[in-house]
Nucleic acid binder design. Structure first.
Lengths: 239, 239
DNA sequence: TAAACTATTACGAAGCGTGAAGGTGG
DNA sequence: TCCACCTTCACGCTTCGTAATAGTTT
């Protein structure tokens, strides 16, 4: 059993914050001593870690509390989603760094703010919140996954397999770009009109979300997902 | 000349935020029309970009305003510092991702919160604020750099040169770890007692700050800085 | 004249930092 | 008895979102 100070030292968060988290019911002490002291245990530490991961991803504390409170909340699934979200953040950071470097030595395009865009992350964050929020939107999400018949999936993986064979080329090479165009038309034909923006979002999902990445790499060989993302960037990049 | 809506569409930030930035003097319109409308120009866009980079790094808006207001503010130097800071953020994210993965498939150590730690970033952020804040701390920082005589610098680069020759080995290999130990003792002898934590911070600086990285790579060959950081992680990692 | 802008003003919420004032433990 | 710890208010700050109300442009 640890006091607030010990918890603070272990985790690096402030005592005030622990008080606050208690106050809003986000992290209640395991026990209250006779003297009124807050006492925490190992379960508290684990919960705190879960909280910190979500906080890192700028989830509002109230929603974190709500999610952790759900009976069907699954720490492992949460962790897996958190990893995906962190990968997305990292990719955004990399785009920002690239933009900054370009601005520094080329001057760059004044009106280019694309790198600041956040909606891929926000979208997946929303889905995650809905995962433990039981909204209608999640129902729709569940269904969508099921409605993709296996033959459609396989056809799409065929495109990635072809793309995988071109990994040695530059992502911007014409033969590669052809495949991206084919991918786009395939999506338009089978799912929804695939604008460049949507395509770009998908590209990021391919590398950030493990489920996508594994499937794609299985179809086209190690690194195909990453290659696809770069090719998509090139496709969408210079208008 | 653009209206608020046009600016919002271009940059992706909300109209309310533009109003607010005007209100606190962070981003004044280039001009106010007769009708009272806010009108922005290209300079506004560039300033906004600067602001967004700093905001991305969680600088308080007031401090951003103060810095941009300094007469000796240098956009290029700012950009370069922003890049360093973003690199640091990215590294932290990677550590967090690694921690999450480990937790997911090993269970991991419950009490391990190191990856959440932020002080390397915070420290450099502070220095950046002080760079355009003209505080005493910055004077001290300036002096410190000058006091490192060239012979001390060269001796240290010698260690990195030796480290560079071991790049083919694993970062955790004994012969590599010896060099890290030597580095640590060298720092202790010439600068200040080098605890593991300080060493770890330095390791991150080596790859995040271009000035460090270039010097180190010049001494030990391309990739030496990155290799040094990994070796330092290994050195500090498992206690 | 309606639709689509613009403006100002104001209330509110999130996530703590920072005391103040007072009880506990070794 | 002292010092370092704990407690509970309580106020304030930042960064906008979200109306509400009213004038402007097309």
């Amino acid at each position: 059993m640890w006091t607030v100070r010990a918890m603070s030292a272990l985790s690096g968060i402030s005592i005030r914050t622990l008080h606050y988290y208690d106050e809003i019911g986000l992290l209640r002490p395991a026990e209250i001593g006779e003297n009124g002291y807050r006492l925490y245990d190992e379960a508290s530490l684990m919960r705190l870690k879960s909280i910190l991961f979500f906080r890192e991803l700028q989830f509002p504390l109230k929603e974190i509390a709500a999610m952790l409170g759900q009976e069907d909340f699954d720490p492992r699934e949460a962790l897996s989603r958190q990893i995906t979200l962190m990968e997305m953040k990292r990719q955004r950071l990399e785009r920002l760094i690239a933009l900054a470097r370009k601005t520094l030595d080329e001057g760059g395009n004044i009106m280019d703010f694309k790198a600041f865009d956040d909606h891929v992350f926000q979208q997946y964050a929303k889905e995650t919140k809905e995962r433990w929020g039981h909204t209608e939107a999640y129902q729709a999400y569940e269904k969508r996954g099921a409605s993709d018949g296996p033959e459609v999936q396989q056809a799409m993986m065929g495109i990635f397999a072809q793309l995988g064979e071109l990994k040695a080329l530059s992502p911007a090479a014409p033969r590669v770009q052809e495949k991206i165009e084919a991918l786009r038309q395939f999506i338009t034909a089978h799912f929804y009109p695939c604008t460049k923006e949507i395509l770009q979002s998908l590209g990021q999902m391919y590398t950030a979300d493990e489920r996508f990445r594994k499937n794609i790499d299985a179809a086209g060989g190690e690194g195909t997902a990453a290659f696809a993302e770069k090719a998509i960037q090139a496709y969408c990049g210079e208008k």
